[in-house]
Amino acid sequence: MTPPAGSLLSAEALRKAYGPTLALDGAEFSIHPGEVVAVMGPSGSGKSTLLHCLAGIVTPDSGTITYNGRELSAMSDAQRSALRRSDFGFVFQFGQLVPELTCVENVALPLRLNGTPRKEAERTALTWMERLEVDDLRKKRPGEVSGGQGQRVAVARSLVTNPRVLFADEPTGALDSLNGERVMELLTDAARSTNAAVVLVTHEARVAAYSDREIVVRDGKSRDMERIV
């Protein structure tokens, strides 16, 4: 099979086992630039594993992942790390901000990992923090801000490198509905404005409602609801 025309990131027949547990069993995926795709499914169904495979964090046991015409599994670990630094952004549920760094330093971190000088990186970081309405937190440390604010900082950090694909794993999982919605609005607005694709892993329908379409993972198999209907 060839990836659907125009897709930025696609996966075919992914299989991944953790010991005796089969996390993915023939999963498929594809996403276009500027598209927001929700990955849904019950817990333990393999949603997160699918995201990790797509992001090149985890290597699948078999199957192909194509990003922008390049085969991910053919790349070395260092190449995939470099790709994650330059082309991908990440938001997780929690535990992602470095507690010792101030918020603006946290946001600037991906830029600095790419070699951007500190001053310039923090300037760019600040513009993103303004967009996510957290620029007043720049001198604070993650321990001193609320969960919603912290998650916005994390979103700002995920977008600071202008990624082509943004991976969000339960980005609102630790937030109340109002904060969760605000984070989702800001996240999807920002992604759309930069034409970034968003892979959004969630089990919450109201979060998934911010997507353009959804993919359901069950027992390691994925179902692309749009292609079926």
């Binding site: 329908a205 409602a209 997507s211 609801m225």
Partner: peptide, 24 residues
């Protein structure tokens, strides 16, 4: 039966997307 549920979920999400969009 899972197909029925998935299809229904998709339909629900479609409505929710429309509502979310209107809300925004």
């Amino acid at each position: 039966a899972a197909d029925i549920l998935d299809t229904q979920r998709s339909e629900h999400l479609r409505s929710m997307r429309i509502l979310t969009d209107r809300k925004r």
